Every structure is written in structure tokens, then in C-alpha cells.
Simulated scan of single mutants.
Amino acid sequence: MSVPLLALFLTAFAFGTAEFVIAGLLPEVALGLDVSVPVAGYLISGYAIGIAVLGPLLTLATKRFNRKTTVVVLGALFAVGQALCAIAPNFELLMAARVFVSALHGAFFGMAFVISTGLVPPERRGFAVALVLSGLTVSNVIGVPLGTAIGQLFDWRATFWAVGALGLIASIVIAVFLPKTAGSESTHSSFAREFKALGRQQVYLGLAIATLVMLAQYAVFTYIAPLYLEVTRLEEEMVPIMLLIYGVGATIGVFLGGRLADWNLGKSIVLVLAGQVLLFGSLYFVAPYPLAMGITTFIWGGVNFAFGSPLQSRMLLWANDAPNLTSSLIPTGFNVGIAVGAILSANLLEQGMGYHNLPWVGTVVITIALLLAIISVVWEAKSTNRPPTGDADTIIVAH
């Protein structure tokens, strides 16, 4: 495995930790900035909106720049952004720093996919992309629990300093070892073909399902720390352990989703979403019981991350002749869902709903996503249309 690929993985890990670790630190951040926990939850929404909107714009603005130079600069600016988060004196400036970092996040992953596939032979391009993507998953398993523990042991600001240092180290490794010409080759489909692919129901309904699934997940996960503390009544030091349990389940779910995708794309999407409906509902009933909550958290993490591979694979199969626009919109759909989920729960909490009832929000939204998936699969089965043919080397599964 090449050092540049490992550096890209490490940078992806840093970005993933920066995005998700705030969920484990919300009570501390809220206390430190003298805001309510629901208001602090907007830090997750702001980051997600930045990825969805500013990331693609930054990618377009830098498309003529040398890819190596751009990625190194993004890594350095990421470290600066984390430092700004660490020293932010109030909520508004912390939000501004988070949005700044999120724009870098969105641009980095678009470039990292292209660069990673150019570092390996054609037959290993899937592995290269998977390695970059695994940085996000591993950040949930290791980065989020470790970052939460650092924040609780020292101070929540220490977490931002640590993540920023990690990003800076990764960017230095990229600067030293990444070839100057990495990512210089690219292929471009016509805009007409790209937009035509979006008109296929497997693609646009897939985007709707992706948005709804992430909305459901982050309507609950945004406030998972106070849920554990106030409803499950865990000690504060148990929160990182529960997040680790969730992350281990998520990692297993990623591989399970890949196996299900190889089995049957449509049926696996329906099966995973049905499992999510059951798990979200179960969270409400087991929340007051620590052992049951731990077991359910593990399974919940698994089913949450199992849906990605089947859904994305199906969407890109049906956009095989023009995958660029579709693959770039998938993370946009994910992050719009994250932002809306966090905002929705914040509003419901401010109206007095209570953390214990948040799983019902996820249950309702996931049920809608399941119904859309069933409609899409049945529609496809009754149609005579077949997936288009295209260059398999251009297919990238995004997250």
C-alpha cells in the first residue's frame, strides 16, 4: 500500500472526525459557549450544509489548479480551520469556523477520489476509492470516541487542536510523497448526458431516499450524547464507549452492505431500510436500560451504514453512462439530510419534545424512505428499461 494513499486515508479520517466528533461533545460545547444543547446542535447542520453547497463550488473554483498543490493547501487550511474552532470565543465564530472547514471537506473528497484512482493500476481503482472512503467509517470507530474522550479528559477545545494537528501531518506527508502529476487526468461527460441520467427514477428516487435516511439518522444521532446521559442515565465516561460500540457496528455494516449489494441491489435496499425501521423504533423502548441500549446501539450502527453500498451502487449502475453529476450529488443528498435532521430535532427539542422521543422522528422518516424504495423496486421490475452501458472505470461510489 503506497504512502500517498495512506496520507489520503489519514486526511479523510481527520475530516470525518472533524464532522462527527461534535455529536459526542455537544453538552460540553454548549456549556462552554453558554448556549443550549439544541442550539449547539446547529454546529452539525452548518457543517453539513457547507459540504453540500460550498464543497462543490470550491471544487469548481479550483478545477484548473494542480491537484497535488490544491490538496496540500486544503490540508493546511483544514489545520487552520480547526485552530479557529479551538479558539472561538462564542457560538457564532465557532459556527463560522466549522462552515469554513466544511467547504474544504467537500472539495477534498471530490479531488481525493480522482487522485487515488491515478495512484494505482486500473484493476485496483475500486480499492483505492474504498480506502479513502474508509477514512470516514474509521473516523466513527476510532476518531469520534477518541476525540470525545480527549474533550472530556481535557477540554472540548483540545479535541479541535488534536484533529487539526492530524490534518496538518497528513498534508505534509501528501506534500512529500504525492507525485506532482497526480490527478491531472480526468474525463468529462456532456452536461446533457449528466442531467439525462438524473431523470431515471432509480437515480432521483435514490437521492430522495439518501436524504431521508440521513435525516432520520441525524435527527437522533445529533443528540445521542444527551440521550445516553439523560435517558439511559449513563456516566459521562461511558459516552465514548457507546460511540465506539456504534462505530464497530457501523464498520461491520459497511462490509455487510457490500455483500448485500453483490446479492441483489433492490431487495437489499428494502431489507436494510426495513431493519432500520425496527431499530429506530426499538431505541425508544430500550433507551432506559443500559445493557439493552448498548446492544441496540451496536445493531443500529450496523444497519445505518449497511444501506450506503446497495443504494449508491444501484444509483451509479443506472447512471453508468454519465456518473459524474450523480456521484457528486450523492454526498450533497447525504449532508442535506444531516442538516435537516439536526435542525428538525433542535426545533422539536426547543418545543419540549424530550430526547427520549427522538427515535420516533427517525422511525417515521425511515418508513417514508422504505415506501419510496418499495415503489422504486416495483417500478423497475415492471419496466422494460435496462441500465445503460458505460465505462466502468469512471464509476466512483461516493459518501
Results as ranks from 00 to 15, higher is better:
69 T>I: 00
70 T>V: 10
71 V>D: 04
73 V>D: 10
73 V>G: 06
75 G>W: 07
76 A>K: 02
78 F>K: 04
79 A>N: 06
79 A>Y: 04
79 A>M: 08
81 G>H: 06
83 A>K: 00
83 A>M: 12
84 L>S: 06
85 C>L: 04
85 C>H: 05
86 A>H: 10
88 A>H: 07
88 A>T: 06
89 P>Q: 12
89 P>R: 05
90 N>W: 04
91 F>P: 04
91 F>R: 04
92 E>T: 05
93 L>P: 01
94 L>M: 15
95 M>N: 08
97 A>V: 09
98 R>H: 11
98 R>Y: 08
98 R>L: 11
99 V>D: 11
99 V>W: 10
100 F>I: 11
100 F>L: 12
100 F>D: 14
100 F>K: 13
100 F>M: 13
100 F>V: 11
104 L>K: 03
106 G>Q: 03
106 G>L: 02
106 G>S: 02
108 F>V: 07
108 F>I: 08
109 F>N: 03
109 F>R: 03
109 F>I: 11
109 F>V: 09
110 G>F: 03
111 M>I: 12
111 M>R: 05
112 A>N: 06
112 A>L: 07
113 F>Q: 01
114 V>K: 03
115 I>S: 03
115 I>V: 15
116 S>D: 07
116 S>Q: 05
117 T>W: 01
117 T>F: 00
118 G>D: 08
118 G>C: 04
119 L>H: 09
123 E>F: 02
124 R>V: 01
125 R>C: 04
128 A>W: 03
128 A>I: 05
129 V>I: 13
129 V>E: 01
130 A>R: 06
130 A>C: 06
132 V>L: 01
132 V>P: 00
135 G>Y: 07
135 G>S: 07
136 L>C: 00
136 L>S: 02
136 L>V: 12
137 T>V: 15
137 T>P: 00
137 T>E: 06
138 V>C: 01
138 V>N: 00
138 V>M: 13
140 N>G: 05
140 N>K: 05
141 V>G: 00
141 V>Q: 00
143 G>I: 04
144 V>K: 03
145 P>W: 10
145 P>Y: 10
146 L>C: 03
147 G>S: 12
147 G>W: 14
147 G>C: 11
147 G>H: 14
150 I>N: 02
153 L>H: 15
153 L>K: 14
153 L>Y: 15
153 L>C: 05
154 F>L: 14
155 D>K: 00
155 D>T: 14
157 R>C: 04
157 R>M: 07
158 A>E: 10
159 T>S: 06
159 T>I: 08
159 T>W: 02
159 T>K: 01
160 F>H: 12
161 W>K: 02
162 A>S: 14
163 V>A: 05
165 A>D: 08
166 L>N: 13
166 L>F: 07
166 L>E: 14
167 G>L: 08
169 I>H: 12
170 A>T: 09
171 S>V: 03
172 I>C: 15
172 I>G: 13
173 V>F: 12
175 A>M: 14
177 F>D: 04
178 L>A: 10
179 P>Y: 13
181 T>Q: 15
183 G>R: 05
183 G>A: 09
184 S>I: 00
185 E>R: 10
